[in-house]
Structure formats: structure tokens, C-alpha cells
Simulated scan of single mutants.
Amino acid sequence: MTRTPERNAPESRGPSVSRRLRWGLLAGLGFVIVPLVYAAAVLTSTGQRVEDAALGGVRESDLFGSDTALNVISVPVILLLVVVIAAVAFARRRLAVGLGAGVVVLASAATSTLVKRIAERPEIAQSTTPNSFPSGHATIALAALFAVLLVTPRRFRAVVTLVGAAYAVFVANQTVVYGWHRVSDIVGACGIALFWLGVVRLVGPRVDRGERGDRDGDRGPRRIVTVVLLGATGVTFLVGVVALVVGLTGGSDGHDAILVAGRMASSASVLAVVAVVWLADGQHHVTRSDVSAPPARA
């Protein structure tokens, strides 16, 4: 008789820190990020001036403009996403995980709306741009990625992560380019999405059960994703620093350079959060159990 060898749950092969503690720490990190960024960037004159300097680089014709990537995010699309997530979870017989994924999307969107109404922006720096903390678009883009990853088999998460991260970065960039949001709004959005994902992974059901449908897939794509996420985060951060220095020391092009710095800072924030989630999920680990063992005969 031939039988497929048992596989241990992938989550147990992750870092030495336990699964629940790992996600609990990330939930705590997301919870702390939001008030700290709000206090530093929104409630201080220095923070407001630095961020408003980036808005000064937005062309008048683009201010509060729109883009297809931003217009896609709407209430009907969010509800459709939840339905699709539920359908995938039902097909995989993981209804509890699908429910948790729905919570990530809906709770993140609701929290972003609530914080936006509570976290008022005092006009310390005499800015004419209205309150926008945090970015609802960036929150939903990240929460949608995290929710889809919850119901996606591990062997497909490399592709989903890259596509979802690219879209989330594009959304974050466009909100800054069109003057919809400041960098702090994007960082706050990252904190909210990270918080709810951490909560769901902390108290919710185990996402990966170690069964055949949850196999990791080839090691190559996972290694590539790890390198791309970490490398892209580092590159965008460095480009942002250089652009900021040029903006502070430059002449007439200073506002344009600072706008580039703001875009890079927003992109780096999104990429860093996605990279942290990728690593916390244990996707970067390569062990002997990833290799299919020869069938045992009895």
C-alpha cells in the first residue's frame, strides 16, 4: 500500500517565537504605530511643515485628481472582495479562516474611517489641505492583500504577495502624487491593516493545517519574493533619503525632490509591512520538509 507521508504544519516551521506570540507582537506594533505617527506628524508644527513641503511639489492640475487604481477602491468593490474571499474559503473548506479574512478587510476599513473622524488635524502650519489621517485607500489595499493571503494556499502566496504588494505601493504612490494624503497617512494605514491581521492570526484559527493543499510549493519563488521585498524596501528608502537631502539643499526644484521623497517613504512603508508579514508567515524558511519525500510502502 502506498500512502502520502504526513507533513507538519508549516507554521510550526517558522521562527523560534511561537505563532501566537509572533502575531501578537505584530498586532501590538500596528496598534502603537498609529498614535505615534499621529502625534509626531500631525500634532506638531515640525511634522506638519515637513509633510506639507511634499504637497508643495504636487502640480496644481493634479491636486485632488484621480486615478483608476484609486477609483477601484469603493464600497461595492470591498463587499465583492469579501464575497470572493468567502467563496474561496468555502471551496477550500476553511470557513473560519474566510471569516477571519473578512474581519481583516471590514474591520480595517471601519477603523480607518473612525480614526479619520476622531484624529482631527489642527492647522498649526497653516495648511490648506484638509484632514486625511489615515489613508482609507492604502488601508483597504493592504487589508485586501492580507485577507486574500489568508485564504490562498501557501504554494500560490508568492505570486499573490508580489501582485498585491505592487498594487498597494501603486495606490500609496498615487494618493501622494495627487495630494490626497501625506506620508503619515500611509504609515497610519499600514499600522491599522497590520493590527487587524495580527489580531485575526492571534485569536483566529490556524491558517495552515499542513495538509496537501497547504504545501509550500517550490523554494525558488519564495526566495525570490523575500529578496524582492527586502531589496525593494531598502532601495526605496535610500532613494527617499537622497531625494530628501536634495530637496532640503536644492533650489527651485526642492519641492519636486521632497515630493519624490514622500512617494518613496510611502512606498517603503508599504513594502516594509508586507515584508514583515511575509517573514512572520514563515514563507522565507526553507527546510528539508519542503522537499517531497518518497512515498512509503507498507
Rank of each mutant, 00 (worst) to 15 (best):
R223M: 10
T249A: 15
V148Y: 01
S252T: 11
A257C: 01
P5I: 07
V42L: 09
L202G: 02
R212G: 08
G217F: 01
R219P: 12
E211Y: 03
R263M: 13
T128A: 14
L26R: 02
G136D: 11
Q48R: 10
L229W: 06
G220V: 08
V241Q: 12
A280L: 04
G234R: 05
G198V: 01
P35V: 05
L79C: 08
G14N: 10
L99Y: 07
A144Y: 01
V227L: 12
D218F: 06
R117L: 14
E11Q: 11
A293D: 14
D185V: 02
S18H: 09
I258F: 09
G28R: 11
D67M: 03
W196P: 04
A257S: 15
V160T: 11
P134N: 10
V176S: 08
A147T: 00
L36K: 06
V176C: 06
R222D: 15
R288W: 10
A101V: 07
R20D: 07
L81A: 13
E51N: 09
V260S: 05
T128W: 07
D281C: 03
A54D: 06
F195Q: 02
G282Q: 02
G57K: 04
A158F: 03
S266V: 00
A165K: 00
V270G: 04
D281L: 13
A168E: 12
T161K: 02
A158M: 03
S135Q: 00
E120Q: 13
R94E: 15
V225I: 03
S18I: 01
A107H: 07
L21T: 12
V177D: 14
A109H: 05
V235N: 07
S289V: 08
P130Y: 07
G28P: 00
G254R: 07
R49V: 14
T4S: 10
N131C: 09
A41H: 05
S289R: 10
A268F: 00
R223N: 12
L55V: 02
F90K: 15
R155T: 00
D52Q: 11
V286R: 07
T111I: 04
P130N: 08
V203D: 09
G56F: 05
Q283P: 07
V199K: 01
G14Q: 03
N71L: 14
A158R: 02
L244Q: 10
T233K: 04
G188I: 01
A280W: 01
A138L: 03
S184E: 05
V235G: 09
G213H: 07
V103R: 04
A107N: 10
D290F: 02
